[in-house]
Design a protein around this nucleic acid. Sequence first.
DNA 1: TCATAGTAAAAAATCGATTTTTCTAGCATA
DNA 2: TATGCTAGAAAAATCGATTTTTTACTATGA
Lengths: 224, 224
Amino acid sequence: MSVRQAPATALDATTAASQVYAALKRDLIRGRFVAGEKLAINHLKETYAVGLSPLREALNRLAAYGLLAQENQRGFRVPALKRRELDDIAGLRQQFEVQALEAALRQGDAQWEAELLAAFHRLKRADEQPDALEHWEQMHLQFHRRLLEPCGSAWLLRFIEQLHDQFDRYRRMAPAHQDIRAQLDVQHAELVELALARGIAEARELIHAHIQLSYDVAKSACSE
Amino acid sequence: MSVRQAPATALDATTAASQVYAALKRDLIRGRFVAGEKLAINHLKETYAVGLSPLREALNRLAAYGLLAQENQRGFRVPALKRRELDDIAGLRQQFEVQALEAALRQGDAQWEAELLAAFHRLKRADEQPDALEHWEQMHLQFHRRLLEPCGSAWLLRFIEQLHDQFDRYRRMAPAHQDIRAQLDVQHAELVELALARGIAEARELIHAHIQLSYDVAKSACSE
DNA sequence: TCATAGTAAAAAATCGATTTTTCTAGCATA
DNA sequence: TATGCTAGAAAAATCGATTTTTTACTATGA
């Protein structure tokens, strides 16, 4: 009945639900939706050009992840940005990342050092890409992921990633969040140095201050 | 076309997807599925008496939560029980719950004390219920939830709950897990005492030992 | 014997339509 | 004016069928 597809399709061997999930996740963190807004599923169907089933599966995943709120029989809502919750998220991020960084510095090997340098280099060069803003965010996330990677606890990394995503919703909604880019980039360079030198005590201080800097900016995203 | 339902339906104002989610979650933690097993969706459809859509939504939520593994275009799989992962989970549980307990003892009020006592009482009386084993597990979970509740960090509680669910997959799969019930129950009583007396240092020790006890039993659930 | 292409069956993923529930006005009643 | 009721519309949730992808099996040729 159907014409056999060209083998090219083998490249994007990913499911429609996963693609919508990724796209929606990106747009939620980016701030494409108004905080507190109710999602119109039929509208999303058109925006993301998918059917109802994969879309609903993606929404369910995002709700389980904490980037959406699911209300009994009345669909999905973008969570509000609450100052109390930001404080909670930022505090845990500081605690978890300080801990993970120390473990990573103790356990990271030469291979990790090389990959960290590579990630840092891509971050520095992010501005040269088209769509520089979004690309920097992407490289920034990858840099931090790489930095903590050899900490030895998969679940701690999972929680850190989740908190990071939550945190970024606030940070990227803040009006002045672009203005601290230069300061953050200085800290990234220092983090790399300390990582290679295994300066644990200083690295702990720095990652804490690094999160604090974004945190101070992010605060302006909340009303309450 | 359809006969108007009696108002009784207003009681179970919950969606089919949520019900399957709850049932599947319970059965996964209970050990009803073989670790590593691939789930046959069409079979689950009959077992849980639901259609494909709500079932798939539930599976997607469980995968995002970490109780299922989702493989590219080949469905869902029950995660294997790995010793390395158990160690990770138990270690984080100890750390997080020690921290949350201290915060809870500092912040819990009289209302909390009353509810904790109530939860403890229900736990003690669990054996008298029909289906005593499952009921004890239920009350046990609620007791621990209540204990840490006033810690002040919603996200920390969320992570603790998630780790607890993961941990219980291992614990309840261990052959001898029933044998330590008596010891656990003694510790629960001591935890209540310390909570009311705000004995922070001792409570920290005790919750750590409490998790360690189950952890030692749970180890026998893993092959590798 | 082994590797490999072809094919049928099974399973997963998706679509389109239907059912159920919630929301919104408008109307009647006190 | 406020309150409650109800039909109609809108939205959410679910079902049944279709399409796509993977898996298992078989035959073929090196």
